[in-house]
Simulated assay, not measured.
Amino acid sequence: MSDTHLHALEEKLSHLQRVADELSDIVAGQARDIERLQRRVGLLMEREAEREAEGGGTVPLADQRPPHW
């Protein structure tokens, strides 16, 4: 294998490593965002359930059948 060919392979490997590192950072950021959003949705669901329970006598929205049933 010539030095030129070896150098080209090293450059490609370096580029691929950089791309893999960037993608890893992106995925880690998305995982943090998903966790944060899941917590927020959970809190909103709890808040809505409490609001519906305080409404008294009505069936909670989550337990209602869709209108097409």
Rank of each mutant, 00 (worst) to 15 (best):
S2V: 09
V59I: 15
S24C: 11
H5C: 08
G42P: 02
E50V: 04
S14N: 12
L37R: 02
V19W: 04
D3M: 07
E35R: 02
S14Q: 14
A20L: 08
D33V: 03
T4A: 14
G29K: 03
K12I: 10
W69Q: 11
L6C: 07
R32I: 01
Q64S: 10
K12R: 15
G57E: 06
E10P: 03
A8H: 12
D33M: 07
H7V: 11
S24R: 14
E48A: 09
D63T: 03
L43P: 00
R51C: 04
L44R: 06
R65K: 08
P67E: 12
E22R: 12
H68S: 07
A8R: 14
P67G: 03
E54D: 11
Q38V: 06
A53S: 13
A28P: 00
R51E: 12
V19N: 07
A49I: 05
D63M: 07
E35D: 08
E22T: 11
L9K: 11
D3H: 09
G57I: 01
I26K: 10
H7L: 15
K12C: 08
E46Q: 07
E52F: 00
D25T: 07
L61I: 09
R39C: 03
R18M: 10
H68W: 15
V19D: 10
P66E: 10
A20F: 02
D21S: 10
L37D: 01
L6R: 13
V59T: 15
A8D: 15
I26M: 11
R65S: 05
E54T: 06
D3G: 08
Q64N: 12
T58C: 08
E50F: 03
L6S: 10
P60S: 10
E35Q: 04
E50W: 05
E52C: 02
G56I: 01
V41Q: 01
A53E: 13
A49G: 05
R51P: 00
G57Q: 04
E48L: 10
A49C: 06
L44F: 02
H15G: 01
R47A: 05
E35N: 03
K12V: 09
I26G: 01
P60N: 12
D63Q: 14
A53D: 11
E22C: 06
P60Q: 11
E48V: 07
S2Q: 13
Q38C: 09
L43V: 02
A28V: 07
M45S: 10
R36S: 00
Q64L: 14
A28F: 04
A20G: 02
Q64G: 09
D33T: 06
Q30L: 09
I26Q: 11
L23I: 10
L61C: 07
R36Q: 01
L16E: 12
E11V: 10
D63E: 14
I26T: 13
G42E: 09
I34K: 05
L6D: 12
R40H: 07
R32A: 05
L43N: 06
R18Q: 14
E50H: 05
T4G: 03
A8N: 13
R39K: 15
G56L: 05
T58M: 13
L37G: 00
H68M: 06
R36W: 00
D25Q: 11
V27S: 12
R65G: 02
E54R: 15
I34W: 00
R32K: 08
R32W: 00
E52S: 02
L6T: 14
G56T: 02
E54M: 09
D3R: 08
L43F: 03
D3C: 04
S14L: 11
G55I: 02
T58K: 12
S2G: 15
K12A: 14
L61S: 14
S2H: 09
